[in-house]
Design a protein around this nucleic acid. Sequence first.
RNA 1: GGGCGCUUAGCUCAGUUGGCUAGAGCACUGCCCUUACAAGGCAGGGGUCGGCGGUUCGAGUCCGUCAGCGCCCACCA
Length: 886
Amino acid sequence: ATLCSANEKARRTPLSALHPVGLSATLCSANEKARPTPLPLPVHMARDIPEKPSLEGLEAKWDARWEQDGTYRFDRSKTRDQIFAIDTPPPTVSGSLHMGSVFGYVQTDAHARYRRMSGKEVFYPMGWDDNGLPTERRVQNYYGVRCDPNIAYDPDFTPPETAYDPPVQVSRRNFIDLCHVLTAEDEKVFEDLWRAIGLSVDWSLTYATIDHHSRRISQKAFLRNLARGEAYSAEAPVLWDVDFQTAVAQAELEDREKAGAYYKIAFRKADGEPVYIDTTRPELICSCVALVAHPDDERYQGLIGEKVTSPLFGVELPVVAHDLADPEKGTGIAMICTFGDTTDVTWWRELDLPTRAVIQHDGRFHEETPEWLSGEGADTYSELAGLFPNQARRKMAEMLEEAGALDGEPREITHPVKFYEKGDRPLEIVTSRQWYIRNGARDDELRNDLLARGEELHWVPEHMGVRYKHWVDGLNSDWLISRQRFFGVPIPLWYRLDSSGEPDYENPLAPDEADLPIDPSSHVPAGYEESQRGKPGGFVGDPDIMDTWATSSLTPQIAGHWDDDPDLWARVFPMDIRPQGPDIIRTWLFSTTVRSHFEHGRLPWDTATINGWILDPDRKKMSKSIGNVVTPMPFVEEYGAEAVRYWACKGRPGADTAIDFGIMKIGRRLAIKILNAARFALGFTDSDVDPAAINEDIDKSMLAGLSATVEEATKAFEEYDYTRALEAAESSFWGWTDDYVELVKARAYGEGAQAASAHAALQLALGVYLRLFAPFLPYTTEEVWSWWKEGSIHRMPWPDETQLATHTGEPAVLSKTSEVLAAVRRTKSDASVSMRAEVERVSVTGDSSDIDLIRAAEADLKAAARAASIEYAEGEFGVVAVLTAQ
RNA sequence: GGGCGCUUAGCUCAGUUGGCUAGAGCACUGCCCUUACAAGGCAGGGGUCGGCGGUUCGAGUCCGUCAGCGCCCACCA
């Protein structure tokens, strides 16, 4: 009754308790004591095979050994056609570890291991993405500091032990130092996990997106984009996060459903007649520049071209017509503000309307009264000055109510509001100067070229390509790459200041490529002195940094050393695969395609392998906001790396997969089974047996089946379907242990040519199975290999079914004999007797070909069934076993 | 509003050009300490393939339609 009860409990433990402590209740501890000591094999055990093989400690042992031996070290003497290059996703190191951090990476690793065994030299680097806002935010929270660019550098600064509230203000340079300290720690945590789960990356190739080399490539690529006209700066309305106080790009937006309300507000015609509009943002009436209706809307046709006056502010406004005005929405006529939403931007641009901005970069309403307001309007505005939009909205609603300009009660609604994906408050739209890289949003020819690149790319699974197409089709603005932040790759430009101190943005000063990377805030453009910084007639550095994707879109160039190692670059580019998650097709995959298209005129890789989502055990998507993120290390420690890898590889390409402890347990069981089966197969001789000794029909039959398995697994891997490759090996292997091994066991314990045939067949098959499993279970297979062979299994050739061909025979001998054995087992099971129970007689009826197959394995069958005799008769296939009376 | 994916046993999932009686593992039930493995083995029960309609000699598979779930995109008035 106590069997596995501890295990059962662990399985039912709620997620919230799944911490190292919660899991540490030893699995199956009750069983530990009751287990009898294993009997030693009766034959010579000259090989170093443990009596009780175990998975414990294999990860640490082999990770150290692989590192020492350079097992996965990239051999750059190989040529492009001999190399398989992987554009590994650099994880955001400031992000938390979760099961997704192992899922996709293990799947890619399994494929990498297959390619390495099948003869390719695998270029498999790891990178760390430590740029950008996530790191900044993490540093702020971790150390309790805020960056203030106006503070001087303090060389003796040490971060506070605990985070203070309010935060400590530090200089930009001190802040960046802290970023480096923290990312180094974060990288270590990720590396420990990757090593624990056995990723076969070459750690000597590791890069970080903030390191010297990456900054150099990032700036070089940008300057080349600039020189070719693919990058440009413009003063324009941008989506703006008021907390981070930076512009954000279209790709970083997400909609969130927020509660809001429609306010029905009266504007007045010259004759005093009201014109009602519906708005969710009444606080922006002061920035209204026009009302807009659809040109075909009969209700408002007479109003087009007329003037109306805004309530409380008394501003006279034109009524204009535009197709985007939706007669079905609200009252059918809307106010255009600068800017309440992206439609406003479109109207403003296309209808050439004035700009009346009231929201500042910090999200508050300007303190000063705008120039277009006067008299009562100015008084009204003074009530809003300095407020945040949500505060201003409440104030405005009160004032409208009092003024009788509000028609009825506000109608509460829920509507989608645009947020920066990492932000906490709705985005505002402000006008500012930013850098962009063209992406086809405003250029049909480029858009079509990029769509064609998407068609060219081999997508796994295929339907993921649709997401790329939709994204490119739906682009409505160029790629905004500048960010008003501190930690990242600086935009490598300066601007001349004219005699009045105004920057000349149209003709930026660029550094020489040879001087990269540079920081324009501390380096000086050619022909200038530091003393001229900020002075009229002098220069000023661009204060911004680049978006994290502006650098990570260059991972092939960074990892392949595009700029400083043309020999390596020629060997690895274009790369073979880009493995990544589906959520970053619109960002990482697309931006990498754009950069490669511009710089190299081609795709950066042949194939994109897109993994699925990780769902929690209740099949909900894991996210930090729900609080169901599961960290992987406890699973690795408790179930073992092989178990976690097995689970990850059971998730099919692109398929969403739930965390499933049951599947991890099966993986662990498989690994243990392999150890034990290997112990049996290798236990008969202390030297290899020549495969030429294989002459028994059933041995040859087994090898024929194995050959088919190899073929199937290979085909699956070639189609990037690691799951099918695993399942092929797995189902074949269980059949092998359950039937073939049982059938030949007695013969194997004997002597002479017949025993030698079994020994040779067992060894040959084991060698094949180990290699079929090596991509999935690298530790177990390496362990067994080390009992037996020299060198790492992970550098051994992938099994080739044609090499088995000389030893194969009729596959049906084994399958038919197994059917008979199963029938005998059923008889024993029905009789509730041991499988060792003696059988007086087995009667087999079948057609002559069936009988011939079984006769070919009769001796093994009799031994395995413990049958005294086997009789045959012609007829429909059937088996009757008569148990010996006790 | 548009798009993509999913729906097969209690659970997690296979089922590749339509073809014998729909499979696996887990879970469940029974039996078995068997000289690789009791952290194991052997055997068994369990499904009208989300609903409806159509094509076909034949549909889990193809077509249409509806429903539910998940994800992505969309101009927030």
